[in-house]
């Protein structure tokens, strides 16, 4: 675990707008690069003089560079979101537990993403595409508030071409939307994962995750085969500051990816 409190400098090489308030930044190290990140792990991104926020890796995670998708909601995330190519950010990490990969050979894999929750799943989807032949089926279910809030929308066509079953739904359709409307759980219809050989990966708003886990169970995917990525107030990244506790878990260290079996009981307790 890297407990160095000082950030490493990275230069922004690309800043691509994903939605009106969300962009994806590609970063290259200026100093010695941090160790490689694994899909599901997160970094603390620092905007000089403004502050630091936790952001999952959402694409490239090698030692040579990093990709992060950031939504502008506060002062720090806005500064990171707005950082132009050529600008500098500080990075600490990698932190936390990654997605368990690969999934079992010949498994039926179901990925469920709500809103910005697709960002930490993006490098996992990349793995599934690269190793598609390894699995029996791969479904990627994506929900968002509106069609404009869908992340990486230009890539869905390529994912489908590579053999992924990509299904998309929105809460509120906009003119020109021909896709599904409603909850992401409705997209599970027709999927029949083999209970003994399957894997589920879920990330989205907390209100979404428990219903998704239950719905996965009803189509035959045991909760023991599902992983969730959680969000809490991560500050230090190393289990020393105490802010991200969820019952027995330090989400920064024992998460953000946790087995659904562990998370389900904890998320059921109000204000835990």
């Amino acid at each position: 675990m890297n407990t160095d409190p000082a950030p490493h400098r990275y230069r922004v090489v690309v800043n691509r707008a994903e939605t009106p308030d969300t962009s994806t930044l590609t970063l290259r190290p200026v100093d010695a690069p941090l160790p490689a990140f694994l899909p599901g792990q997160f970094a603390m991104l620092y905007a000089f003089g403004i502050g630091e926020i936790p952001v999952s890796v959402s694409g490239r995670c090698g030692a040579g560079g990093l990709m992060h998708t950031v939504r502008a909601v506060g002062a720090v995330s806005r500064a990171v979101h707005d950082c132009p190519p050529g600008g500098f950010l500080g990075v600490r990490g990698p932190f936390g537990r990654p997605w368990t990969l690969p999934a079992p050979r010949d498994a039926d894999v179901v990925v469920v993403a709500g809103g910005l929750g697709l960002a930490p799943l993006h490098p996992l989807v990349r793995h599934l595409r690269d190793h598609r032949v390894r699995y029996r089926s791969v479904a990627v279910l994506i929900g968002a508030r509106t069609p404009d809030d869908l992340l990486y929308r230009a890539e869905y066509r390529r994912w489908r071409a590579d053999g992924l079953d990509v299904r998309v739904t929105v809460d509120r359709p906009l003119p020109g939307w021909n896709g599904a409307t409603g909850l992401v759980t409705a997209l599970l219809t027709g999927l029949r994962p083999q209970p003994g050989r399957c894997a589920g990966y879920v990330c989205g708003p907390e209100v979404m995750m428990r219903p998704v886990v239950r719905s996965l169970a009803t189509i035959g995917m045991p909760t023991s085969r599902v992983e969730l990525s959680l969000e809490r107030n991560m500050q230090c990244g190393t289990g020393h500051c105490g802010h991200c506790q969820l019952g027995p878990l330090f989400v920064c260290r024992d998460g953000p990816v946790v087995p659904a079996t562990a998370a389900e009981n904890l998320l059921a307790v109000r204000e835990l």
Binding site: A6, P7, R9, V30, F48, F88, L89
Partner: peptide, 16 residues
């Protein structure tokens, strides 16, 4: 204080 930094041509310099 965990560290201090100064803005420079390479973004900033951190002194921990």
């Amino acid at each position: 204080r965990l560290w201090r930094g100064t803005r420079d041509d390479e973004g900033f310099r951190v002194d921990a």
